[in-house]
Design a protein around this nucleic acid. Structure first.
Lengths: 200, 200
DNA sequence: TGACGGTGAGACGTCGGGCGTCTTAGTGTC
DNA sequence: GACACTAAGACGCCCGACGTCTCACCGTCA
């Protein structure tokens, strides 16, 4: 299996710290969370936290976002991997991602509690990284059918649409429902397919 | 109707402020709640808050506790008022109070989030006031049957038991269930009744 | 119209506490 | 015994929340 990740694997201690950051930020909110909260919750000392994540708070949050995105796309890729046709790959990826977003309790809590911070991570600040990781994770599967350039363009669009329909659902289509998503995605797929090859 | 209250009635502005304190303390916790949170939430300016509640944070929390206790016992008394026999008065009061405690979402949230502060208000720090208010609220009803001295002693015990069984439920009795509470309270009631009078 | 009480907006100095760094001691491993 | 890793906590810094204050504004009433 191809390892798609943004960096080296985390040690057990690092994971414990990030788990604590996740829990504390969920409970207290980003600004109100304290490093000492993380110390208490994780059982990892202050000095160790600053040695593992030099730079403080922001580095800690950044590392957490990276880890969560890694996990998100690892799971998504595992779901999609067994699909054969381009159509299935795309539908599974979009539907799977949408459902994963909807089922993410931490995401929901953060969106409710601190919409500013969270929306920023799903739009202006976060989208470039999300697309980068979506591309890294899914291009290997899609490129077999479309080639690398078209794959990247398609994934870029799909990622943006998935986020948009998650944040602002439309009565016209439900990207969490395969029966609804498939016909919605089909024309888009044709658009991205090379003119010389039949797509279905 | 007899007005049982710890002070003068609150103005609309004061109530708006305390509502904001309630919501903010529930959302952020007691220590992490900020006066500016209350300003934003209530729409009442900083200057006005300090003029209405001179002394700051602690006065604000204290006023909130007083208001909530006032409301609690006002509702409880309304529930009990129509009872005739001493037995019914006591059972209704205990069962009603227990249920009200169990249904109080804010209380539950605070107990989960900051057990230290909340437990303190239900035990060491708060019990004297609770008993004082329970006495003021219920003595007029009970005294017809037991006289003032016995009434106060009975209410004191009942308040303590209600709190204890709420905080630490027993498999032996459910004070939120009338059928279970009545036989549990009956012997205690006999104990407090004057020897010269028949109690049932 | 002018006086006046109530309020919003915000500046101000103070002070606590959270921040990030550092040192020390303890523990386990080779 | 050398070394890596960590917990515990002291340290100074500095931001931000606190409580106070002033001023302007608005509605009411004489």
């Amino acid at each position: 299996m191809t390892e798609v990740s943004s960096g080296r694997a985390l040690t057990g201690v690092e994971d414990r710290v990030l788990d604590a950051v996740l829990e504390c930020s969920q409970r207290w909110g980003y600004e109100r969370m304290t490093i000492d909260d993380v110390v208490d919750r994780s059982g990892v000392s202050r000095a160790t936290i600053y040695r593992l994540f030099p730079g403080g708070r922001e580095v800690l949050f950044e590392a957490l976002r990276v880890r969560e995105l890694d996990r998100f796309f690892a799971e998504l890729r595992a779901e999609v991997e067994s699909a054969d046709t381009l159509d299935d790959i795309v539908v599974r990826a979009v539907v799977g991602a949408t459902r994963a977003l909807r089922d993410d309790e931490h995401l929901a809590a953060m969106l409710a509690a601190e919409p500013g911070e969270m929306l920023s991570q799903l739009t202006v600040d976060g989208v470039p990284r999300i697309i980068r990781m979506a591309t890294a994770s899914l291009t290997p599967l899609v490129a077999n059918h479309l080639g690398p350039a078209r794959s990247r363009a398609l994934i870029d669009v799909l990622a943006r649409l998935t986020i948009s329909y998650f944040l602002a659902p439309s009565p016209l289509v439900d990207l969490g429902d395969e029966a609804s998503a498939r016909p919605f995605l089909a024309p888009m797929l044709r658009e991205f397919s090379p003119p010389s090859t039949a797509t279905n």
